[in-house]
């Protein structure tokens, strides 16, 4: 799938905007069946199909109608067209993942002007063009989850190394800061090296190969850019150190399935896309019915309660894909 996008998505998640423009909740008959439109960046994309699967389940449970449509390939202009179509059709609420936030915001403001509620998920638009953003991850959540998982696999003891995108990548440096923060709680773990792979799978493989041979006691390689995870895993496989050197990282299930099943990669960390889709629909529904209002501190959906920071509804802790669950995801 689109690991290019995932990185930018996470970047968007970083921008925890403090203020969302609020608007009195329009009255919506609480018993009425709502029409919820969901706009992914591209509808052929496995990542968004997975989110749509969760969204459909949520819509069914709520008794709403879900319209899922988007460009076949990522295409900001097509996104605008689809939103215009929905405005004319008169849907109740729209949930969007923006390809180009400036371009899409104009169309969404128009929708808001017609009384249509808007939430964004996955990739935010400008704050005044939606009421809430369903935020899938924070740097702290990612950093802590990676470090905790590494410690769990190493029994909180031993050497590990990190492969990053580049030494200047802003996202990766933010995660690294949180990993370092969390590392303080594991005094017996040592970070022996931190090397860039220039977002290149084959360079990641070379780096991992050298790291293993330069640090014979290395217990784990943590890749915090998506090409790094399969790259490091291939290196471990080729070095014949499967099981001896563990691999974890931030990436996508499909890129890593073979290595997870082969026992090379132990955990791939991202967020649960089905839950992200479901939450987007639940938030959209609640916003249209007036049960979710700007200024709320928490949002209760089904049997889970999500935190709201400013106008960001937080999906919560990242999700860990492993041997047991990875086959349920296809992106």
């Amino acid at each position: 799938m689109k690991r290019l996008l995932v990185l930018s998505l996470v970047a968007t998640g970083l921008l925890l905007s403090g203020c969302g423009k609020t608007e009195p909740a329009a009255a919506a008959a609480s018993g009425k069946k709502l029409t919820i439109a969901m706009l992914p960046k591209s509808k052929g994309n496995a990542y968004f199909l997975s989110a749509a699967k969760g969204a459909q389940k949520a819509a069914d449970a709520l008794g709403d109608t879900l319209l899922f449509d988007g460009p076949t390939q990522t295409d900001p202009a097509k996104q605008n067209e689809i939103v215009e179509g929905w405005i004319n059709k008169g849907v109740d609420v729209i949930a969007v993942a923006a390809e180009d936030k400036d371009a899409l915001s104009t169309a969404l403001r128009k929708a808001q002007g017609k009384g249509i509620k808007v939430v964004s998920f996955d990739a935010d638009v400008l704050p005044d063009a939606r009421t809430f953003f369903v935020n899938q991850a924070t740097p702290q959540g990612i950093g802590y989850a990676l470090m905790d998982e590494a410690a769990r696999l190493c029994d909180s003891e031993g050497e590990f190394a990190i492969i990053t995108a580049s030494l200047t990548a802003a996202n990766q440096n933010e995660w690294k800061k949180n990993i370092d923060e969390r590392l303080k709680t594991y005094p017996k773990m040592t970070l022996v090296d931190f090397r860039p792979c220039d977002d290149d799978k084959s360079k990641a493989q070379a780096e991992a190969t050298t790291l293993m041979s330069a640090h014979p006691n290395l217990k784990l390689i943590m890749a915090i850019c998506s090409p790094g995870v399969p790259g490091a895993a291939e290196a471990v496989k080729q070095a014949g150190k499967t099981g001896k050197v563990k691999v974890i990282g931030l990436g996508l299930p499909n890129e890593n399935k073979a290595y997870v099943h082969g026992g090379v990669t132990d955990s791939v960390i991202l967020w649960n896309t089905e839950e992200l889709g479901a939450l987007a629909i639940q938030a959209a529904d609640a916003l249209a019915r007036g049960t979710l209002k700007p200024g709320d501190k928490t949002f209760k959906a089904g049997d889970k309660t999500y935190d709201i920071v400013g106008d960001n509804i937080m999906l919560g802790k990242p999700f860990i894909f492993n041997k047991d669950n990875i086959d349920q995801f296809d992106f």
Partner: peptide, 16 residues
């Protein structure tokens, strides 16, 4: 030569 060195071909390979 580069592609067959892993089970997956990276479409961003060759950058730089």
């Amino acid at each position: 030569m580069a592609a067959v060195q892993s089970p997956q071909v990276d479409p961003t390979a060759g950058t730089g």
